[in-house]
């Protein structure tokens, strides 16, 4: 199975681990990630006003490219996942945006939201299946208690992203189970880490991440996993007493699949 792959800017720089372990794991799981050529940054944030077009075009181009290949479009970064799915929803359902974006892009045929956008985790859940994943695990992470940290952008707005139940998600918990570890469920797992405000208000972000560590470790987590480079950054910056290591989910995946070394 071949997928168009949209890595996004951070995965080419500060979050290379998220990317490289995903690529190695994909091979182990039997699917191929074809990075789309000349992709441009999604902007990290879905445009704030309904009438903005220009800021959506990079996503539209990526989506249309995948359509031309006849492939689903995979992302890993939670921000790219969020922006691509929302822009895709606009291209499918919002007439005005659809028309203006197509007028601007002049594709061979208009793009109308045909591409299916999938988060890497969704491919595991919906295409491969967690049972299948469990069978492919060679180094089960037995005995580890892992807290899934979802943050905001993978889940919300739930109706459009359609990733999982935005209040009580279980995709990452099922993922953790498939790797042989024990998921730790805690209520801060879908609460914001402070996001981009850490640029100007780093102290505020610290109060947020401290609550996340307190809550997750209170329930016994010995580490956290995330799909978001920004969450990773903010959590790492924390000076909470309860701080535990944070990994990209792909790193633990590669470890369990036995492809971490050499990735």
């Amino acid at each position: 199975m071949k997928y168009s792959y949209y890595p996004g800017c951070t995965l080419k720089n500060k979050a290379q681990d998220l990317d490289k372990y995903a690529r190695a794991s994909a091979v182990a799981l039997g699917f191929e990630l074809e990075e789309i050529p000349e992709w441009q940054c999604c902007g990290g944030v879905y445009p704030l006003a309904t009438d903005e077009i220009a800021t959506k075009l990079s996503s539209v181009r990526a989506l249309n490219y995948a359509k031309e290949q006849g492939q689903d479009l995979i992302t890993l970064c939670s921000a790219c996942h969020h922006v691509l799915k929302r822009v895709n929803d606009d291209m499918k359902n919002v007439e005005d945006i659809k028309n203006r974006a197509n007028n601007y892009c002049e594709f061979d045929e208009p793009y109308q939201g045909e591409t299916k956008v999938l988060h890497f985790l969704e491919v595991i859940r919906d295409v491969i299946g967690f049972e299948e994943l469990a069978k492919k695990v060679v180094n089960p992470l037995t005995g580890r208690k892992i807290g899934a940290y979802y943050g905001c952008l993978t889940l919300r707005p739930g109706k459009i992203l359609d990733f999982d139940d935005p209040e009580n998600p279980k995709i990452m918990e099922d993922f953790i189970r498939a790797l042989g570890a024990e998921p730790v469920i805690y209520s801060m797992r879908n609460e914001c880490c402070g996001g981009y405000t850490s640029l100007k208000d780093p102290e505020f972000t610290k109060t947020r991440t401290e609550q996340i560590f307190d809550d997750s470790t209170g329930f016994g987590a010995d580490c956290l996993i995330t799909a978001c480079p920004l969450c990773m950054f903010n959590l790492n910056k924390s000076d909470a007493k309860s701080k535990v290591p944070v990994y990209y989910f792909t790193e633990l995946l590669a470890e369990a699949l036995g492809v971490k070394e050499g990735a």
Partner: peptide, 14 residues
């Protein structure tokens, strides 16, 4: 270690 995502997000939001 500041990720690009943070910079672009902040620019977009601010």
């Amino acid at each position: 270690d500041l990720p690009q995502q943070l910079l672009v997000s902040a620019f977009r939001r601010y």
